[in-house]
Simulated assay, not measured.
Amino acid sequence: MKRCKLPTPRMLLTLALIGLAWSPAASMAQQRDADQPIHIEADRLDLDDAAGTAVYTGDVDIRQGTMRITGDRVELQRNAAGELSRATARGERAYLEQQPDPDQPVVRGWGRTVIYHAAERRVELIDRAELHQAGDTFDGGYLEYFLDRRVVQARAESEGVEGRQRIRMTLQPER
């Protein structure tokens, strides 16, 4: 007879956090960011309203609610409804941060390329990728983070990345 392994306290905590991510409070927090104005600072703007793209260059800093995106170059793309569909930041250390829920710490991510997929609430961190989430850190060639579910997927290699950047993690002990 095969014995089932009991879940560890860390596994139970992860399941609880996933449950919280689907709670109405988390949805309201995310909606509050989407309802906030977008503030942008840059040295240059190239806007193509018909194509739904805006390209900002030169020490770009974009803020909306708890979300912040920085980079040497940031391209914003809108969907047919005029809503932000994707933000792509590039630079030596492009950066994205957001507080997914008022009761949770800010999530911070870096990479040479940072892509935020607005509809999916998914972040891709590419080349020298680094993610900090509630005291835990993840480093590698490619990191993908799902803000709502608080799920991290990591790979040592990524398309367009030279060399292998092994995955490294630091997980904080349970409290």
Rank of each mutant, 00 (worst) to 15 (best):
R3A: 12
T8V: 14
M11T: 15
L13M: 12
L15T: 01
L15W: 03
A16G: 02
G19A: 06
W22M: 10
W22P: 01
S23D: 01
S23K: 11
P24F: 05
A26C: 00
A26H: 05
A26V: 10
S27K: 03
Q31D: 00
D33F: 08
D33P: 14
D33M: 09
D35F: 04
P37K: 08
P37R: 14
I40S: 13
R44S: 15
R44K: 10
L45R: 04
L45Y: 11
L47Q: 13
D49G: 14
A50H: 15
A50G: 14
A51H: 12
G52D: 02
G52Q: 02
T53G: 06
A54F: 09
Y56G: 09
D59C: 02
V60N: 04
D61N: 06
D61F: 00
G65A: 08
G65H: 01
T66I: 08
M67G: 05
G71M: 11
D72G: 04
R73N: 15
E75I: 06
L76H: 11
Q77D: 09
R78D: 04
R78G: 01
S85R: 12
R86N: 07
R86D: 07
A87W: 00
A87K: 04
A87Y: 01
T88V: 14
A89F: 01
A89I: 05
R90D: 14
G91R: 09
G91A: 03
A94F: 11
E97K: 10
Q98P: 07
P100F: 03
P100N: 09
D101Q: 15
D103Q: 13
P105Y: 01
R108V: 06
W110V: 03
R112L: 09
T113A: 07
I115F: 00
Y116V: 12
H117G: 04
A119E: 05
E120F: 01
E120N: 14
R121K: 10
R122E: 05
V123I: 04
V123Y: 00
I126D: 04
I126P: 10
D127L: 04
D127N: 12
E130T: 08
Q133M: 10
Q133T: 08
G140T: 01
Y145R: 08
Y145F: 03
F146W: 00
R149S: 12
V151D: 13
Q153C: 13
A156F: 13
E157T: 15
E159R: 12
E162L: 13
E162T: 07
G163Q: 13
G163N: 09
R164L: 13
R166V: 08
I167Q: 07
R168V: 00
R168G: 03
R168C: 06
M169C: 11
T170G: 11
L171P: 02
Q172K: 15
P173G: 13
R175T: 12
